[in-house]
Write a protein that binds this DNA or RNA. Structure first.
Length: 704
DNA sequence: AGCACGCCGACT
DNA sequence: GTCGGCGTGCTC
């Protein structure tokens, strides 16, 4: 691997007029908000507009005439309404730039009206959206939908009215001095450096009395030091529980100018924060994966917490991971990039190996981890856990809460025939039957209730529970540890915090509550079950789940790996995660698996996919690009929806990324152009030919 | 998407 | 001769 493998990150966008200076603009009246500052036409007659459309063939700029009566108001970045297809039908779009003349042959239609005086799309965000969409084979409009919240007239009026009043002093002195390490990191970030940090374990107490993970305090210090340098910081965090912790840490430190962008906010709140970000004041913007597109003023750094969490991958086309968007943005804007986590992702490990990201080597404090290896010292089972684990739990309960991490939610993941012992299969779809709660069994694939189930082998109709879900674990612990509170936290009933009193907290991975003062003990069960998940990245995921759980222990608490063995468990127990990741990455390099290489999946009708793959060979065959398949997509696959589809997987070196994306995107555009006719021409009753679908860097593309 | 353009078979 | 079938392609 070489540093050149990131050369696919575009240095510049083709479209857009961001280069034109805004200096010729007349001085704005004193009462207008600085969020209105943007380039005006200044006599130029043509406006370049990106239309709001999901259609790939419309994903380019359209020229419109600047009407006399709008010339004074119109600005780059404004949302406008324009005639499209005919003078009656109108479409929405964004003004991307102005020009003297148009290269379009026909007569230009005029812009119909301006939706809002606020230029919502800054040149920087436009450049980012264009580059990110190009890299992912998608439309810029799809990125802008994530980047720009829906307009709220009331919020906007309020914002513009308040703009006359002088902004509050933005150079707030922090309530506590920033720690020297964080200040040093921030100083490097604002010069454009890219750093990776493994965070310290255990919760810490804020001056407000609230407990948060030590990582949150570290990120708060770094973000505040970036802000103190007069720059904005964007902090991307996977979920609202992480965002809450960071927000608490920032508040306790007296941070000013903090904005929050997350999925739980109303659109009005989101639009309000968005307008403040646009305001020309440096901010600390914290939020979910979409926050990476926030219109930050003077962006100094993007901070990403726990980038291995799958929720940072956008589920909507073009499926761009926040990490990738951040890489492009940092490259384009010269901002720094900070990856922090308890367990590094394979992607960040790759970036450190090629020297693109610098490793912060100072070893963090880590919870003491012990391993009860059943294969070395077989132990007696009196209930759900081996005796050694039960002893650890009892010891912890003497002084505080104990966390027990389990693999599966629900009651019992598996059921078997009570008579012959065969695995119970759903009578409708053949899927495995599990118990969601005690006594109610249903198919884990189709959800059908297993009320009238009969065994296909012996005809018996008694279902027996096998395996231990979180609910059944709670039941067993209530029996085994009488007199103690047993609390449950899982995906359906997440619990954000627990107090410092003794209690057993049973949680599924990722749903562990934060304990005041930290857990006395963290017990990790079901390692072999988690590692056996049919997932190429099971090892990496397990290390992340385990490290995040271990980080919830008190500084003098203990983490017990209660079972399992093998290299991944060893890496966790000995704390040599980076070494394991390193060798894993070498293996993937040899096997050509991501993230050592990139992948794209191409799905559609057989002829469509063939045409798309042909584009990879014309006009010349791209070196470093390999095609697997196409293979039929199983009819049961939700992607198929009854139609007969095939899928090919394209593997390529990072340096080939822009070529591959450009060519596959070209095939998609010509396919879409012909799609309407195919649709119309289809015989009645025949399945609708699905559109060609393109997906880059799909994490699960090689999973069964 | 949705609509106009355009090029071959059956018709008042 | 022309009406209209639907494949093709464009939308500033």
């Amino acid at each position: 691997m070489s540093a050149g493998e990131l050369s696919d990150v575009p240095a510049d966008a083709e479209h857009g007029e961001s280069a034109a200076p805004a200096t010729e603009e007349p001085a704005a009246p004193a009462s207008t908000c600085s969020c209105l500052d943007a380039e005006a036409p200044n006599g130029r007659a043509v406006a370049e507009v990106l239309l709001d459309s999901a259609l790939p063939q419309l994903d380019h700029l359209f020229d419109y005439a600047v009407p006399e009566e709008l010339a004074g108001e119109l600005r780059v970045g404004q949302r406008v309404r324009v005639p499209f297809r005919n003078q009656q039908r109108k479409a929405f779009g964004y003004v991307i730039g102005f020009a003297e003349t148009s290269s379009f042959g026909g007569e230009l239609s005029p812009i119909a009206d301006i939706v809002s005086p606020v230029p919502q799309l800054t040149p920087e965000v436009w450049r980012l959206a264009r580059a990110v969409a190009d890299r992912a084979g998608g439309s810029a409009g799809d990125i802008l939908r994530l980047a720009i919240p829906g307009r709220q007239v009331r919020v906007e009026k309020q914002h513009l009215a308040a703009a006359g009043t002088p902004p509050e002093a933005s150079a707030h002195a922090p309530a506590e001095p920033l720690d020297a390490d964080s200040a040093a990191i921030a100083a490097r970030l604002v010069t454009g450096e890219r750093l990776a940090l493994t965070a310290t374990h255990s919760p810490e107490r804020l001056s407000t009395g609230e407990w948060v993970g030590a990582w949150a305090i570290r990120l708060a210090h770094v973000a505040m030091a970036v802000h103190a340098a007069g720059k904005s910081a964007i902090v991307v965090l996977p979920d609202y529980r992480d965002q809450d912790q960071l927000q608490s840490a920032l508040a306790a430190l007296g941070a000013a100018d903090v904005l929050r962008v997350d999925a739980r906010q109303s659109n009005a709140e989101r639009y309000g924060s968005f307008l403040q970000a646009l305001d020309g004041v440096a901010r600390i913007i914290i939020g979910n994966r979409s926050a990476v597109y926030a219109p930050a003023h003077e962006l100094g750094a993007i901070l990403i917490w726990d980038d291995g969490d799958p929720v940072l991958a956008e589920p909507l086309a073009p499926y761009v991971h926040a990490r990738d968007a951040a890489l492009v943005r940092a490259e384009q804007s010269g901002a720094g990039l900070f990856f922090a986590a308890h367990a590094r992702s394979a992607e960040v490990e790759r970036l450190t190996l090629i020297g693109y990201v610098q490793d912060q080597v100072n070893p963090p404090r880590r919870t003491r981890v012990i391993h009860a290896d059943q294969s070395i010292a077989p132990d007696a089972f009196a209930g759900r856990v081996p005796d050694f684990a039960a002893k650890t739990i009892r010891e912890g309960l003497r002084t505080g809460p104990v966390l027990v991490q389990v693999a599966t939610p629900g009651y019992a993941p598996v059921s078997v025939c009570g008579d012959c012992g065969d695995l119970a299969r759903c009578t409708a779809c053949g899927g495995p039957i599990g118990f969601r709660t005690a006594g109610t069994a249903a198919c884990r694939w189709c959800g059908q209730h297993a009320g009238g189930w009969a065994c296909a082998g012996c005809g018996g109709n008694r279902l027996a529970e096998r395996g231990m879900g979180s609910a059944r674990t709670v039941e067993q612990f209530e029996r085994q540890f009488r007199g103690f509170r047993v609390l449950l936290s899982d995906g359906d009933h997440p619990r954000e915090r627990v107090d410092a009193r003794p209690a057993i907290v049973v949680a599924t991975r990722g749903a562990e509550p934060l304990a005041a003062g930290g857990y006395r003990a963290v017990v990790l069960l079901d390692a072999e079950r988690l590692l056996s998940l049919e997932n190429l990245r099971a090892g990496e995921d397990c290390l992340r789940w385990w490290e995040n759980a271990a980080a919830l222990a008190a500084p003098d608490g203990v983490c017990l790996m209660a079972s399992g063995g093998g290299p991944v468990v060893q890496a966790f127990v000995t704390g040599r995660i980076d070494e394991w990741l390193h060798s894993e990455l070498r293996d993937r390099q040899a096997l050509r698996y991501p993230p050592a290489v990139r992948v794209a999946s191409v799905t559609g009708g057989s002829a469509q996919v063939d045409r798309a793959l042909a584009a990879l060979r014309t006009p010349d065959t791209l070196a470093g690009v390999e095609v697997l398949g196409p293979t039929p997509v199983a009819a049961s696959d939700p992607a198929a929806r009854g139609a007969k589809l095939v899928r090919a997987i394209v593997r390529f070196e990072y340096a080939r990324g822009s070529d591959v994306a450009k060519r596959l995107r070209g095939a998609l555009v010509s396919d879409a152009a012909g799609a309407s006719s195919r649709q119309k021409g289809r015989a009645p009753g025949r399945a609708v030919p699905e559109a060609l679908r393109l997906r880059f860097d799909d994490r699960g593309v090689f999973d069964g």
